[in-house]
Each structure stands twice: as C-alpha cells, then as structure tokens.
Amino acid sequence: MASTPHKDYHDDELDPTNIIETYISADKTDSKEELLHYPLRELFNILTPGCVRGDTLIDLSFSVAIGQLLTASDYFKEIIMLESSDVSIREIEKWLKKEPGAMDFSHAAMFVCELEGKSEGWEEKEEKVRRAVKHVVKCDFTKANPLDPVVVPQADVLTSVWYLEAVSKDHDSYLSNLKKMSSFLKVGGHLILFGFLNMSYYMIDKRKFSMLTYDEEFAKKALRDTGYSIKSFGKCKSKLNTHMVDYEHIGYFVACKEREV
C-alpha cells in the first residue's frame, strides 16, 4: 500500500489552535519545556546583555508564535509580525484584539516573568506585546518580493522560529527563502534564528506534516552564503519519547547581516 503524502504548512487542515494544544499548552510538560521554554530562555539570554538591540523587530515564525514577543517587547519599540498562513493570521489577530476564543498564552507570559525574576505581572506582559505589534502582514514566498504590495521598513532585528524548515521544499528553496527573508533586515542588523536539526515531520491530529531535513553544517553555510557572520550558536538534544515529532536537536543562531546578497 502506498504511503500517504505528507501535508505541508499551508494546508487548510493545519489548525494553529491544534498545534498549540498538541505541543505547548500549559499541560504539555515535556514538549512545552523543549518547544516553548527552551527558546524563550535562550532568547532572554540573547537579548538581556544589550548587544542585540534596535527600535524595530520583524518576526516571521511558525504559526501563532507569540512566546518570543513576550521577551522582545521589552527591547523594541515596534514589532511587525509576518505570516504566510491565512488561518494563523486570523488567530494572531484574535489574540491581539483579545477576541472571544483567542488562544491562551498566559503560561508563556508567566514563564517569561519568572525569567525576569518577577512573581506577577504576566497580564501587563501580554498587553505590552499588543501595544508593540504595529502590523500583521501577509507574506508569500512564492513571490520575488514576499510582501508585495505592502512595504515595511527594514528591521534592526529579525526573529524566526521554526519557519524556514516548515515552508521550504528542499535545500535550494531554503536558501532562496532565507535570502528573501534577509531582505527584511538592515545591514548591520541581527537575525535570531531557531530551527529543528534533522527533522522530517510533525503530527497534528493523526495527520503528518512535512519538515525540511537539514543539519547544523547546512544551516551555518546557508547563513554565511546569505551574507551573515554567525556570532553565536547553541543547540539542545531532544529528550522527547514520542512518535509525534522526529527532530534530533533544536538549534539557534545569532547572526549579523554584513552585506546584501
């Protein structure tokens, strides 16, 4: 019997609410630690020293990724969110507008408060994100200019969490998408990139979705070839004992854009 083809990121069946519930809701102890707490902790450590700063941050991340903005909103006056999935854009806007049925990220806000040594204040942390996000813009990486016809200013810092491997079909398209994404960032600005190393799929409601498989060396070469100087890199090995995902490591890169490519 032929195997069922994997679905992709832009499939209508990829419900962002199910992604949250499956992997990073408050009751998902193990996967929440790796997929939510680890990147939030590392982002806090990256931004706190003050070396990676600016006025404007652009975020292009997998699905409804609010978590990293809970830390970023302390350091940037303006945040622009980019997303290529219409259903994810609708869920992001529901959360920003505090509409009924919006997803609950309070546990992520509480965790960020703990990182900052605060025992309370998570509601204000969420409100700070809502005030900082000035635009939510649809992007389409099948276009030469993914934001056309919208024009946004180049950012001082660009954050991206789990996105490129979700939307890239092969290594060539990963490189092409990275170059397009890098056009959103100023020369001299910093890219903070989180990715899954050696992953091929993830499961949502018994449906299997594709992820591009690549390793640490490929990612480093891709960044160098796209005009970046890598300033720091870290990774953590997966400890999840599950058939739901198959990544080996979570990796992150902090890279300075030295030239246009």
Results as ranks from 00 to 15, higher is better:
82 L>D: 01
216 E>N: 12
56 T>M: 11
5 P>Q: 06
193 L>I: 00
164 L>V: 04
179 K>M: 01
254 V>H: 01
10 H>T: 00
247 Y>P: 04
146 P>C: 10
108 A>N: 01
188 G>D: 06
46 I>E: 08
257 K>N: 06
125 K>V: 07
152 V>S: 12
122 W>P: 01
192 I>W: 02
158 L>D: 12
102 A>E: 07
247 Y>H: 15
142 T>V: 02
216 E>C: 08
145 N>H: 07
187 V>P: 09
201 Y>P: 08
40 L>C: 13
163 Y>A: 11
115 L>C: 04
221 K>H: 10
145 N>G: 02
128 K>L: 12
177 N>E: 01
17 T>L: 06
72 A>N: 03
70 L>C: 10
194 F>T: 10
43 L>P: 06
81 M>G: 00
100 P>D: 05
19 I>V: 14
70 L>I: 08
95 W>P: 09
188 G>M: 04
214 Y>S: 15
244 M>Y: 06
20 I>E: 05
5 P>S: 10
185 L>Q: 04
195 G>S: 14
226 T>D: 03
67 G>S: 13
110 M>F: 00
93 E>H: 00
118 K>I: 00
260 E>I: 09
90 R>N: 09
50 G>E: 06
253 F>D: 03
58 I>K: 09
60 L>V: 11
198 N>L: 08
19 I>H: 12
174 Y>V: 03
20 I>P: 00
202 Y>L: 13
182 S>F: 00
122 W>A: 15
248 E>D: 15
146 P>T: 07
37 H>F: 13
39 P>K: 02
43 L>K: 03
211 M>E: 09
174 Y>C: 08
29 T>K: 12
238 S>T: 15
195 G>K: 02
58 I>D: 12
72 A>D: 05
253 F>Y: 15
47 L>C: 10
78 E>T: 14
3 S>M: 07
184 F>T: 15
83 E>T: 00
54 G>Q: 03
175 L>A: 11
79 I>Y: 04
55 D>Q: 13
80 I>R: 04
173 S>E: 14
92 I>C: 03
65 A>N: 14
52 V>K: 07
261 V>Y: 07
137 V>T: 05
178 L>H: 06
97 K>P: 00
180 K>G: 05
165 E>V: 11
123 E>Y: 07
246 D>W: 04
216 E>S: 13
125 K>T: 13
136 V>A: 06
6 H>L: 15
199 M>Q: 15
230 I>L: 11
18 N>Y: 02
161 V>C: 09
240 L>V: 04
255 A>L: 01
152 V>Y: 08
248 E>F: 00
9 Y>E: 13
100 P>I: 00
196 F>H: 12
94 K>N: 10
172 D>K: 10
121 G>R: 02
164 L>Y: 04
